[in-house]
């Protein structure tokens, strides 16, 4: 598509041009080659440094100070590890930690399994394949806030559509999705699953399409059933992608915030995740400590611990992935 210029064809005119050009121009060109690249990356690194990297690193420093929201332009006194000690003795912190873990499992596991199945279906030769792909992605275009407002109504105890269906089909009546702990967590996970399954399915689909067809042909010749082909050709080929999606969705789960916040319909105990903190996540706990109670230093400690959890998780995941690969 582009005109390719072979070295031979450019040699003569270039030499001629070089000869004409004065030395100042040559110097300017060399200066351009040497320093322009920095000019190209500079806007990114200046903005990213100021508003991305600096806050990230500085969080650690704030977390060892008694910084308060009402005095946010001052660091406050030195706190040492006091903020961390307080956190680890706070049962609400551990409650938020447990909720975050259970919500992560409840949302990530079904989501990724369903995405895998959906990708398999989308990988068939389909009429209107683009239509199906776009339609599974539609929930992803909705915001967390909008989706949650709608789902909270669908999960309403007395008049919600979900309870209506549960009642008509299974004879189960009036599940209190807003206030009972596990029904609420299942409902919140449903929102996450609804928004993200299609996205993950498309990522799996992309990876499935790059599996060489010969692998399937060989398996067919060997008489492997479709299910065995899925298990022994598709899944192993997708392993790096599956690990990638597990990491991405877990990092997302650890930051879970909007769904549980907007799910509890009352304004006042929104950030506590229900009256008894049935579904307060770490991110909500962070918000409560920092911006409701006004203890920025303590909130920074929460953020730093969340970062630590993410790092530990990614390391564990990488180790497991490596062991699985080695054992093959």
């Amino acid at each position: 598509m582009a005109t390719t210029i072979t070295p031979q064809s450019t040699a003569t005119p270039t030499q001629r041009r070089r000869g004409i050009r004065d030395r100042a121009g040559d110097r300017r060109s060399r200066w351009d080659q040497k320093f322009s690249p920095y000019g190209f990356v500079a806007p990114f690194f200046i903005v990213f440094g100021a508003f991305g990297l600096y806050p990230l690193v500085w969080t650690a420093w704030v977390s060892v100070h008694h910084t308060e929201l009402i005095n946010a332009d001052q660091m406050g006194g030195w706190a040492g590890f006091q903020n961390y000690v307080n956190l680890l003795h706070d049962s609400f912190f551990w409650n938020a930690f447990r909720n975050t873990v259970s919500l992560a499992i409840l949302s990530a596991v079904p989501q990724l399994l369903m995405a895998l199945g959906l990708a398999h279906l989308l990988n068939y030769k389909l009429r209107g394949s683009t239509f199906w792909r776009i339609s599974v992605l539609a929930p992803f275009a909705t915001s967390v806030a909008a989706a949650t407002v709608v789902f909270a109504q669908l999960f309403n105890r007395d008049v919600g559509t979900v309870n209506y269906v549960l009642h008509t089909v299974f004879g189960i009546s009036n599940v209190d999705f807003t206030n009972s702990k596990w029904p609420a967590q299942i409902a919140i996970s449903t929102i996450v699953i609804w928004r993200w399954t299609g996205y993950n399915a498309l990522i799996y689909l992309a990876a499935m399409q790059s599996i060489p067809n010969e692998l399937y042909e060989a398996a067919t010749v060997d008489g492997a059933s479709q299910w065995r082909q899925f298990r022994e050709v598709t899944i192993p080929s997708l392993r790096p992608t599956i690990i990638f999606t597990i990491i991405i969705s877990t990092i997302g789960s650890i930051q879970l915030f909007g769904e549980p916040l907007l799910f509890s319909s009352g304004g006042t105990n929104a950030v506590t995740g229900g009256a008894d903190r049935q579904y307060q996540t770490l991110a909500m706990y962070f918000y409560e400590r920092g911006f409701n109670n006004g203890h920025l230093g303590r909130a920074a400690a929460v953020a730093w611990l969340m970062f630590l959890i993410i790092v530990i998780f990614v390391i564990i995941n990488t180790l497991i992935a490596r062991r699985m690969r080695d054992s093959e």
């Binding site: 508003f51 806050p55 500085w58 920025l296 920074a300 953020a303 970062f307």
Partner: peptide, 10 residues
Amino acid sequence: QIGIVPLYML
């Protein structure tokens, strides 16, 4: 999210 507190102070 990790950098929110310093970002707010900034």
